[in-house]
């Protein structure tokens, strides 16, 4: 875990040119439960995975509404996310007071990045230990941004962060070209499907879903709505399954009937896990992700 004498301070470089404290902060994102975000032409959706810390407590909030046109899904240290959420809310409110319009998303994220960068360069600070997926809609359309503790900000078509998010990212990469023309419902379904790859098999999916878009102020779906989406996004009986994972379409009828009998949203995951062709070699997919980020 420890990398010697170069990781005690955020202002100290390692001889390899790395800042270990910043990289440790990035690890904190991986400890948080997964978040999936994706956008179509007119909508942006974030899906967060709930995992209560104990049987007795509720889960920490995964999605923080910022303004009518922005919301964030968080993975990492919730306390840090609340600070960033408060900052974003203040900025949006101030902007709205001054200009009577909503904050342009690109500029909001740009300013957030600048704010977060400061704490990666000062010896009396620490980086924010939280990753964000920011969904927004403004004059220039829908937006999905990934914000990292290193203060890197990426404009994404779709992204997944947090614990075991690689599976979800693979799903998103596989379907990214179809997202653009998706309807609102299809987009939410894709989000849920992607999330099912990041979730544990033996627990039912507990999701928090946020949506924003054209004529749609940012909204967190109620548990009832969320559940009904999860139900409809199960392997469909309808012929129109074009948006559904290829792997599941190839399933033979016997497996399908088995799935029908097995109630619960974790069903698609059970199905996919038995499909060898979906288990991606991590190396390739990681490279792809990196390529996408750097572009």
């Amino acid at each position: 875990m420890f990398r010697g004498q170069y990781d005690s301070d955020v202002t100290v470089w390692s001889p390899q040119g790395r800042l270990f404290q910043v990289e440790y902060a990035m690890e904190a994102v991986g400890l948080g439960t997964a978040c999936v975000g994706l956008k179509s032409k007119d909508f942006a959706v974030v899906v967060g995975l709930y995992k209560p810390a104990s049987e007795m407590g509720l889960s920490q909030p995964k999605i923080i509404p910022i303004d009518q046109h922005v919301g964030i899904c968080i993975a990492g240290i919730t306390a840090d996310a609340r600070i960033l959420g408060k900052y974003l809310r203040t900025e949006c409110l101030t902007y709205k007071h001054s200009y009577s319009t909503s904050y342009p998303i690109s500029r909001l994220v740009y300013n957030l990045g600048n704010k977060m960068q400061i704490s990666t360069q000062r010896y009396d600070r620490r980086p924010h230990g939280v990753g964000l997926l920011l969904a927004g809609y403004d004059d220039s359309g829908s937006h999905m941004y990934q914000v990292m503790p290193s203060a890197n900000v990426f404009n994404c078509k779709a992204m997944a962060i947090g614990n075991r998010s690689q599976g979800a990212r693979t799903y998103l990469m596989k379907h990214q070209d179809t997202f653009k023309v998706c309807s609102k419902d299809e987009l939410i379904c894709h989000g849920i499907q992607a999330m099912s790859y990041a979730a544990s098999i033996d627990e039912p999916l507990k999701l928090s879903i946020g949506i924003v878009g054209k004529d749609q102020p940012f909204k967190i779906l109620s548990p009832v709505e969320s559940m009904s989406y999860q139900k409809t996004c199960k392997p469909p009986d309808t012929p129109d399954i074009s948006w559904f994972p290829e792997a599941l379409k190839e399933f033979d009828s016997s497996a399908e009937s088995a799935m029908d009998s097995a109630a619960g949203p974790s069903t698609p995951l059970t199905a996919t896990n038995s499909q060898p062709n979906l288990s991606v070699t991590p190396k390739t997919s990681k490279n792809q992700v990196n390529n996408k980020k750097s572009s």
């Binding site: 001054s98 200009y99 009577s100 319009t101 690109s106 740009y110």
Partner: peptide
């Protein structure tokens, strides 16, 4: 300077002047 293609619109300037 932001160079993000976002330009102020007249209604925004009017609101700002009011403030």
């Amino acid at each position: 300077c932001c160079n993000d293609g976002v330009v102020m619109k007249p209604a925004e300037l009017s609101s700002w002047l009011t403030r």
